[in-house]
Computed example of a mutant assay.
Amino acid sequence: MKKIVTSIFILMFMVGCSAQDSGELTRVDVQKGNKQENYEDTLMITDEKTINLLKSSFGEVKWEPNTKPEMSRKEDISATLFYTFDENMPERLYEYRIWFNGNDTATIISNNEKEGYGTLDLDNSRILKNNLLNYHEN
């Protein structure tokens, strides 16, 4: 009986942890940096198709937690992702600073301590660039 109770507890803990990681992305706020070290106006992305593309791309970032990188230039984009984990709780906000590199990859720094510093491959970097940078320009 003790083994069954322990197994159920472990299973519930694992399901609870995975549910936390699978929150619903509901909105993305984007600010584009400019050469004067200022940000332009914030744009809000809420359409479901773009949100799903962005969530998928952010899911492919190769994160290196506990890394303290320093970048030589200001980020190209600052993005705030709004996640809902429980309808009875406020949204959680995760902030990302994104640099688009000359080789069409991206470097990302997150304020989420589980993520930290990350890189994104060519294909997913293009998705971010097209849906964040170009969205901002339209």
Rank of each mutant, 00 (worst) to 15 (best):
K3A: 10
I4V: 05
V5D: 14
T6Y: 08
S7Y: 13
I8P: 08
I10A: 08
I10G: 04
F13K: 10
V15E: 09
V15D: 07
S18P: 05
D21P: 03
R27C: 09
V28C: 01
D29H: 11
D29P: 13
V30L: 03
Q31H: 03
K32I: 05
G33L: 12
G33F: 07
N34E: 11
K35A: 08
Q36W: 02
E37P: 03
E40K: 10
D41K: 12
K49D: 15
N52F: 02
L54M: 03
W63A: 12
W63S: 09
N66P: 00
N66T: 01
P69V: 03
P69K: 06
P69R: 04
M71W: 03
R73C: 06
R73F: 03
K74A: 12
E75G: 03
L81M: 13
F82M: 08
T84R: 14
T84E: 15
D86Q: 08
E91N: 05
R92K: 13
R92E: 12
R92L: 11
L93R: 14
E95N: 15
Y96M: 06
R97C: 00
R97P: 00
K114V: 02
E115I: 01
E115G: 00
D121H: 00
N124K: 11
R126H: 11
R126N: 11
R126I: 04
N130R: 13
N131C: 13
L132E: 00
N134R: 10
Y135D: 12
Y135N: 13
H136L: 10
